[in-house]
Nucleic acid binder design. Structure first.
Length: 467
RNA sequence: GCCUCUUUAGCUCAGUUGGUUAGAGCACAUGACUGUUAAUCAUGGGGUCCUAGGUUCAAGUCCUAGAAGGGGCGCCA
């Protein structure tokens, strides 16, 4: 009898009762097999949920050959009657009539075992780690967060805006970029100065992978009102930390007619929406991560929803740190950029909730941030989260053409490269704001994972581009 | 890029002051068990002690260099 294939998550839904006593078909990968001479229990997972369906096989009904091939990691198709379980630990199970082996997994060489593995070990077999409970959970949450981001912005009337990935401009002076070229690196064409002649390169000039879609995003905001980007971003910095990747995904909303306060309201509402969405839609996966890695995860997620983020001018942050009596490695003074230890003190010790720092000294922030009337500070904002530090960086943008140009000249920027950007201020300039949210940093917070390399399927970082 | 720690069985790790044949748990194989829940119990196989030098009668252990990995810091999202 032919039975319709059912994804395992369907078997754990309320309406699964309709299939009780009927034949069902499930397909997936074996997590464990255990049992005795007469009966075998197979825990099967198909990735649709973190839960396994238990398949019960009477040994007498199956050849020894088939049963021997059912090992951890093997891919099988099982058909049988869905019944209420006689054992504890699961509500339903499948009494197998037939089992087909799709692919065996030699237990002597298959790297994953039914026991737990260290995250460091799994990073070395990144092509197989999605088959583990942990990475299944993380990657399902990752999908749900990506979907929720699009849903949030769409529901609020934002347009999804595609900034280019290949760019000719060093967008913000934001550090090292990956060069994109089709020239033969062993034999590049030379110009009269003896340097590489990029007019002969694919685009007729030197090009790079983007470090931010913001500048192009501002073109969207000043034309169709509210936009967001959500795409890969590349930084060739030699960063070796659990919070940095060379290729990561960033969300950058940009809104006409939003001032810095509107910007902060949006950032706070946005993050809370995403955390709420995860708690509502990823219950099983978050519960697993809470149990296995971080017993405080669910508490921490729920507490972020309850409390207003602190909004604090940079100057007041400096005052708090100076008066704290806390001994810092780097002592605090006005004008300095805050170190991780300072951010952590404010968020984890002093306020014990997320903090948005605003009104930063202009010298340590980007050229495009709106200048305050004091002539010293700009309307930048950093959203700081417990454990992961800066999760969002943003600002109200400088809309005044002359102020912007003056600042760019102070910084010796090549004005030719930015003519298209400056046109936003030359023609119909509008007050506007925006920010960038690191997608993987959001995932660190939502999953409780400690290393950013564990919240992306294929991590890119210095000296590592395998898989 | 800087600082620091680690590297011993498939995985996680122990290995004393340098001293006979390098151990454990799990995994794997075989056997036992009529319903298991990371099943249990018994037996068994399994090692280039990261690599290259060096010190020593003798090195997993001490020294030097290198590689890989972790953590902290910087750059930032």
């Amino acid at each position: 009898m032919e039975a319709r294939r059912i994804e395992i998550k369907e078997l754990f839904c309320e309406n699964a009762k309709q299939w009780i006593s009927q034949d069902v078909c499930v397909k997936g990968w074996v997590r464990t097999k255990r049992g005795n001479k007469s009966v075998a229990f197979i825990a099967l997972n198909d990735g649709s949920t973190i839960k396994n369906i238990q398949i019960v096989a009477d040994v007498a009904n199956f050849s020894e050959d088939i049963l021997n091939q059912i090992t951890t990691g093997a891919c099988i198709c099982a058909v049988g009657k869905l019944v209420e379980s006689m054992g504890k630990g699961q509500s339903v199970e499948i009494q197998a009539n037939s089992i087909e082996i799709y692919g065996t997994a030699d237990p002597q060489t298959y790297p994953l075992q039914k026991k737990g593995h260290s995250l460091e070990f799994l990073r070395g077999i990144a092509h197989l780690r999605p088959r583990t409970n942990t990475f299944g959970a993380v990657l399902r949450i990752r999908h749900n967060m990506a979907f929720a981001i699009h849903k949030y912005f769409n529901d609020k009337g934002f347009f999804y805006w595609h900034s280019p990935l290949i760019t000719a401009s060093d967008c913000e002076g934001a550090g090292e970029m990956f060069q994109v070229t089709t020239l033969d690196l062993d034999n590049t064409p030379k110009n009269e100065q003896g340097k590489t002649d990029y007019t002969q390169d694919f685009f007729g000039q030197s090009t790079f992978l983007t470090v931010s879609g913001q500048l192009e995003g501002e073109l969207g905001a000043t034309s169709i009102g509210k936009i967001y980007t959500f795409g890969p971003t590349f930084r060739a910095e030699n960063s070796n930390t659990p919070r940095h990747l060379a290729e990561f995904w960033m969300i950058e909303p940009e809104m006409a007619f939003y001032d810095i306060n509107d910007n902060m309201d949006l950032a706070e509402d946005f993050i809370k929406y995403l955390v709420r969405y995860a708690l509502d839609n990823c219950k099983d996966d978050i519960a697993f991560l809470n149990d296995m890695y971080d017993k405080d995860l669910i508490n921490r997620l729920e507490s972020v929803l309850k409390e207003d983020f602190v909004r604090l001018p940079y100057k007041e942050a400096i005052d708090i740190l100076e008066k704290s009596g806390h001994k810092f490695e780097v002592s605090v003074s006005w004008g300095m950029d805050l170190q991780s230890e300072h951010e952590r003190y404010l968020v984890e010790q002093h306020f014990k909730r997320p903090v948005i720092l605003i009104d930063w000294p202009k010298e340590i922030k980007s050229f495009y941030m709106k200048q305050n009337d004091d002539g010293k500070t700009v309307r930048g904002m950093d959203v700081l989260f417990p454990q992961i530090g800066e999760i969002i960086g943003g600002s109200e943008r400088e809309a005044d053409y002359n102020k912007l140009v003056t600042r760019m000249k102070e910084l010796n920027m090549n004005m030719e490269h930015y003519q298209w950007y400056l046109d936003t201020r030359r023609f119909g300039s509008a007050p506007h704001s925006g920010f960038g949210l690191g997608f993987e940093r959001l995932l660190l917070f939502v999953t409780g994972m400690a290393n950013i390399r564990d919240v992306i399927p294929f991590a890119r970082f210095p000296k590592n581009a395998m898989f």
